[in-house]
Nucleic acid binder design. Structure first.
Lengths: 328, 328
DNA sequence: CTGTTAGCGCGTTCAA
DNA sequence: TTGAACGCGCTAACAG
């Protein structure tokens, strides 16, 4: 049987309150008591029950992390960031895979509520918002990653897509390209539109015209990327560079290059978003904007603690910058 | 304030014991009581505190998952499998990133202990075993994934590397290849040796000689894969196919092919292990053996529950088969 | 400065 | 079949 606080108290010949005080590092404890208690703790190899503490404090030292898909490398980097910060504070991390399934999501909200977690981080791009105000109602702060929650006044961590796209296209232009094709996802998520905006800004900033014929918009799928790249590159006067606005689209475009016997980086320059951190695995030279997923996770976790300590802080929106780098 | 069991009891005009019995689905409760309680529960939107339950039961409905690196896709697939099974039973999952750091690992063991988790799954390839018997001592079962714990009598889930390698090389031979180069990792982990064994078995089974000149062993790193592939392919009478025994090695080998202007699948056939589920992102045709990470995670979680229900079961070693498939 | 006591919210005896 | 009372292990009031 694991020793409880009463055992330590008996062993040290003090009361449980004293033991508790010593372990909590509270003042008003004599040095003699402190050392007696600490040696008793060491002697018995006592470790306080976090469960009992949670019950008593009505708060568990746990952070909940809700992701849409654990297997997505972006979310995993987020998880790692969250985990690192949690570890610093000796917090545990609850992993919840919502799978975009409202039922699972509802279950996990209940779980967090029932486990009295300190805060919840949502790194889910299509979560159903409606459940979450229950958490807020219970005084459990939420931080959203990479998405705005329209109806919820909560802290958010996101990246500046416009600036990232701009710098990506800047890079292409500085490398001498003037005809740059854009393959951009559309859809309900604002990401695509923001990136297109950045693409156009970069062109204009360098005095280049925006040529609609060089812009393709479509579903954020591999298939679309493939077709768009083929269409762009097989047209008359094809672009010498491609800007791909999404991971899946990029993979499709790269496959198109391959099938057209074009080498990325040699025959066609490629600049792409790598929100999933895939591109480091390619053998192609690419200009890549990587989502700072790890930093986002860290920041999100920090926001939980900040808000826990100061609940009345105004809602924050932290905007991080995507790192643009050249991948092998 | 969230309703507690006493509120429900008052509202229904019964005792807390009755409410508890109804919610636990225990027998010896009259139908009238049951419906009264249930409607009160619904009315108040009551959700029992899992914290209080854990304290009372001295067991939390939580599974601990220790991985060496969250960002590793293999571990994430495992996590997903674990999570799916846990969800079925309404269990939460504690995510612990050990990072191969003994200090972190020790902390997480203590965390699990202090949180009274139901069981712990270790999907960590180089964990320090010594701490884990503390868990066993506390009656918390452990399942190991993809590694044997020499000194610990615990359930294990692993894959049959020999068979997988064999089938991979079988595939190459059936495609007409007779000179097959092997690039195999060595080191303390037995994986490499097992795969080499499978490679040789396949050759022998088809009446082919094992040619030491075609086998390269070295560190499981990209660099080694690159150098080994270059050496093999630039030799006199080079192999027409390559067998790569590890993910990183495979990436290196593919890069070598690229630099030698050889196309995988056309100029050189490539069969590889894909323990990290990377290969689905390549645009090359590859014969791939994928670790059934998801299934391993599921099985590991199931083993936790089995052992919880029947602690005296003999120690099990579950051996799964890697799936061999042709990637894009 | 230290000890006693009363819950935190629940499940589970034991009586009725 | 139901309810009253206790305790899971801890911390925060209050008392001394």
């Amino acid at each position: 049987m694991a020793p409880k606080i009463a055992d330590v108290a008996d062993y040290a010949g003090v009361s449980t309150a004293t033991v508790s005080r010593v372990l909590a590092g509270k003042p008003h404890v004599s040095e003699a008591m402190r050392t007696r208690v600490l040696s008793a703790v060491a002697e018995l190899d006592y470790r306080p029950s976090r469960v009992a503490r949670s019950l008593r404090a009505r708060r568990a030292n746990i952070i909940g992390l809700v992701v849409a898909d654990i297997q997505n490398p972006f979310f995993m980097a987020v998880a790692r960031g969250v985990e690192d910060i949690a570890y610093q504070r000796q917090f545990g991390v609850f992993l919840c895979n919502s799978d975009e399934d409202p039922e699972k999501e509802a279950f996990y909200i209940d779980l967090m509520l029932a486990e009295q977690v300190t805060g919840v981080i949502i790194a889910s791009s299509a979560a159903d918002v409606s459940h979450y105000d229950r958490l807020l109602g219970a005084g459990i702060p939420i931080t959203a990653i990479d998405r705005r929650m329209p109806d919820l006044a909560i802290d958010t961590v996101r990246v500046d897509n416009i600036a990232a796209a701009q710098r990506l296209v800047d890079g292409l232009i500085e490398a001498g390209h003037t005809r740059i094709g854009a393959i951009v996802p559309d859809g309900s998520i604002t990401t695509g539109a923001e990136r297109r905006q950045g693409y156009e800004s970069a062109l204009r900033a360098h005095g280049l015209a925006v040529d609609e014929a060089l812009i393709r918009m479509g579903q954020p799928r591999r298939q679309f990327g493939y077709e768009a790249a083929c269409a762009l590159l097989q047209a008359d006067n094809p672009p010498t560079a491609l800007f791909a606005g999404n991971n899946l689209v990029t993979v499709g475009a790269l496959q198109a290059l391959h099938d057209l016997s074009l080498q990325p980086g040699r025959d066609v320059a490629v600049a792409a978003f790598d929100e999933l951190d895939w591109m480091s695995m390619t053998a192609f030279p690419l200009l890549v904007a990587a989502q700072p997923a790890y930093a986002m996770g860290r920041r999100a976790a920090e926001l939980i603690f900040e808000r826990t300590e100061q609940p009345d802080l105004p809602v924050q929106e932290v905007v991080l910058t995507a790192r643009v780098k050249r991948e092998s």
